[in-house]
Nucleic acid binder design. Structure first.
Lengths: 130, 130
DNA sequence: ATAAGGCTTCCAGCTACTGGAAGGTCAAGG
DNA sequence: CCTTGACCTTCCAGTAGCTGGAAGCCTTAT
């Protein structure tokens, strides 16, 4: 099938599919006209990648996961390790964002939000007290 | 003062300071030798930027905030609006990450993590059921 | 004189795509 | 047969916000 059909079936944009080929995730055949010709297996890999990415796995993690996926003899422990590492990275990001969020929300609550110039948000950013 | 001292006082790497000059946040004077010569005001702006960035404001938001900061007649409502928009973006990111986190944590809990090949994580990624 | 450290510019690269230009290909309609 | 439009191709550039490194000048100390 052509890239448009592969895009529809995998849920990924054609641009992304070309990119995934470029970085070696898939190697679709080429027709006489130079068009890519995707197999069902290619599409399956693309869907695997789409799902992995949507769960926050990096491209590097995806590479590992895909190798494990295609290795019938893998140990689930290896997969779990990658997933746990990703979970930790996600948790770290969430913690960072939560900390930002609290500080920012506090400043917003303090700010009158009217047409006067006095503003605790700017006061904090300007770090006038420290 | 030289860029090294400005870096120390602002808490930003020299590379970042040069970048901030490049994108127009500061315009330090230059000495006869071509070295940048930072004023206390420059450093103050750099600290403002560092604090803003650490609260998750984008460079574009920083531009707006800095303009408001330097405008003595601004309305605090304008500042609050930018902050609220940033808060919303942060909240959206947190929500995305939370959703990922839940799904991933669930899959990890299901996975035995031993040396057998059977793995619910890969099963989900491979999307065998749908 | 020389060595170390700081400063300069410029170019490249990071993540994971995304947009767009220039041009080849294919199927349908007149 | 020709055209139109949708599709495909490659390649280059850009996104956010820096970061690393090379090549080379300046300063200070020995």
């Amino acid at each position: 099938m052509n890239i448009g059909e592969a895009a529809t079936q995998s849920g990924l944009p054609a641009k992304t599919i070309r990119y995934y080929e470029e970085i070696g995730f898939i190697m679709p055949h080429r027709g006489a006209n130079g068009y890519r010709d995707f197999s069902d297996k290619d599409v399956h890999v693309l869907r695997f990648l789409g799902r992995s990415r949507s769960l926050g796995f990096s491209i590097d993690h995806c590479r590992t996961l895909l190798a494990l996926y295609q290795d019938q003899g893998r140990a689930s422990a290896d997969v779990k390790r990658v997933a746990q590492q990703n979970l930790k990275e996600i948790d770290d990001k969430i913690a960072d964002l939560q900390a930002m969020r609290e500080t920012l929300a506090h400043l917003i609550r303090e700010c009158a939000g009217d047409d006067r110039p006095d503003c605790p948000i700017l006061k904090d950013l300007g770090n006038l007290t420290g």
